[in-house]
Amino acid sequence: MKPGEVAIVAGFTDEQLSVKLMEMGCLPGAAVRFNFAAPFGDPICISVSGYELSLRLEEAATISILN
């Protein structure tokens, strides 16, 4: 994804992290927007269910998306 793009959360590839992500409102079926990345490209800021979340690239990579 590029900054500004929106996608739909399809599922997660990591069970442990998925629980945490879902608690924070990152649910399957929810729309996520990639807002911007930190200066060294990591971590990134996303918008999901009305919040701005920051997460590291490796954490973001566990979210599978539908375009």
Binding site: L17, K20, L55, E59
Partner: peptide, 11 residues
């Protein structure tokens, strides 16, 4: 133990 940084960026 895994390290993560899933954190809210408040308004």
């Amino acid at each position: 133990e895994r390290s993560y940084l899933i954190m809210e960026l408040p308004t």
